[in-house]
Amino acid sequence: MLHVNSRIFTSILLLLVSISIKGAKGIVGVNYGMMADNLPTPELVSKFLQESTIISHIRIFNTDPDSLKAFANTGIAVSVTIPNDQISSFTDLEFVQKWLVTSIMPYSLDTNIVRILVGNEVISSANRLMITNLVPAMQTIYTALVNESLDKSIKVSTPHSLGILETSSPPSAAKFRPGYDNHVIKPLLSFLRATDSPFLINPYPFLGCSNQTLDYALFRPNSQVLDEITNLTYTNMLDAQLDAVYSALKVIGFADIDIVIAETGWPSKGEPGQVGVDVESAAEYNKKLVLHVKSMVGTPLMPNRTFETYIFGLFNENLKPGPINERNFGLFHPNFTPVYDIGILRTEVFASSVCKHCHDTKYLFMISMLLYVAFVLAG
């Protein structure tokens, strides 16, 4: 009898967790990179994310069949990525139709594939051929999706670095780099608007901070930054970066396009003496990031908005090239223990949600009654 009651008690606690998660505003996802030789299998990763975290959205950097199969029947929303060096092939409709039949459709019934991302930070790559092929490839993929009646469930977009901006300070004066704005970005935005797809951006306050701006980048109390054009005050660098993107979109007539944070994060290890690169700073940025995007506070130019946000990344990737910090953006070790705690494990979220909503009579009554029933049944 005790075993049965314990199971009932556990089930009710899981129900409470589920309620707290659904009540939270905003979407927090994660980038699931695989450039490492020590990572768990996609099946184990899928099971961990589903059972132990609140992560409901992931992005993978390929169309790996094992990963797409692993996330089948989990409900987790998956964005797949076409690598930059393959973009030119996707301007050919016959090629794309065959690719769709072999790489997407076998998994789309069971796996919640929500986006096909064409490359990553292509416009900032300075590769003219790749940039020229970007929008045609997106259009061709969309045509193939329409032909298979998948265009409503799967959207097409591409992530951008802040390098697409000519200027970002002050945020209200931001605009896209000349040359790209009319010839590439406008056609791209026209495509996004026509297909009801979002504009994806990769803001990294870590890359723009110094000793003087570290507190501003980490959401800490700081002297704040005034935009003298709008007279709006910025308390953190992420808001300023997002508003710079919004302003650039507005300048060319696309302020209505949704903005998604495709990548952001903070490394936990870097070169000796590198400013703010340590476990404590990484934990602080990502934890405050989650709270900020779920708060529905928005930004000075976009008040009361939430942003679908993907943290980079799920694991440290020991085979990534470049400086030390590139291999140390992970939230978890390969054995699924946290590199640091940002409150995305289910038990942590439940506890924080109870505290957050305890002032709300509706939540207090609901939680009190369910806990009372749980303890009586477990008694």
Rank of each mutant, 00 (worst) to 15 (best):
K98Y: 01
S108I: 09
I87W: 00
E43V: 12
C209G: 06
A126R: 13
G75D: 11
L14F: 05
M1G: 14
D66I: 15
F336Y: 08
P42R: 10
V101Y: 13
L371C: 10
N127E: 15
G265M: 04
E51Q: 14
T158N: 07
L207F: 12
C209L: 06
V225R: 13
V45N: 08
F375E: 09
T102P: 04
V30W: 03
Q212C: 00
V373M: 13
N286E: 13
N147S: 13
M302V: 00
A77R: 13
V184L: 10
G379H: 14
T361L: 09
A36T: 11
L189G: 02
F312Y: 15
N38L: 01
P338R: 04
L14Q: 13
D341C: 00
P267F: 03
R128T: 14
Q241F: 05
S210D: 14
I252V: 13
P338T: 10
I58H: 03
E228Y: 07
A248L: 06
Y142G: 01
G23M: 10
G208L: 10
V122G: 01
N304E: 11
P171M: 03
I87Y: 00
N286W: 04
T140A: 03
G33S: 10
N202P: 01
I82G: 02
V101G: 05
D64W: 11
Y310T: 11
V279Y: 00
D239F: 03
L39W: 05
L291K: 15
K288G: 05
D239I: 02
I21D: 04
T213W: 09
E308V: 06
P300V: 05
M237I: 02
R327M: 02
K269N: 02
P334L: 02
H160C: 02
S89K: 15
A70N: 07
P205A: 02
V184R: 09
A24E: 14
S67N: 12
S108Y: 10
D341M: 01
F90C: 07
V290R: 05
D227P: 05
S168P: 00
I131F: 00
A217I: 05
K155L: 10
E308D: 12
D110V: 11
T309P: 11
K362I: 12
Y216D: 05
A255V: 06
T132F: 00
G343D: 09
G298C: 06
L150F: 05
S46P: 12
E308W: 01
P300T: 09
A126N: 09
L301E: 06
F61A: 02
V290N: 02
E280R: 11
F219L: 01
S168I: 06
G119Y: 00
D64I: 06
V225D: 07
T306A: 03
G343E: 06
A374D: 09
A248D: 10
K152M: 13
N84I: 10
F90H: 10
E228R: 12
D341W: 02
I58D: 03
I185T: 07
T230M: 04
L200I: 07
A194T: 15
K294G: 02
I82E: 05
T167S: 12
L291R: 15
S210Q: 12
G313D: 12
G33P: 14
L39N: 00
M34Q: 15
P171R: 07
F219A: 02
S149R: 14
A283L: 03
Y246L: 05
A244N: 10
L200F: 04
L117C: 06
G313Q: 15
A72I: 07
Y204I: 11
Q97K: 15
Y234F: 07
E308L: 08
F199R: 10
L188R: 08
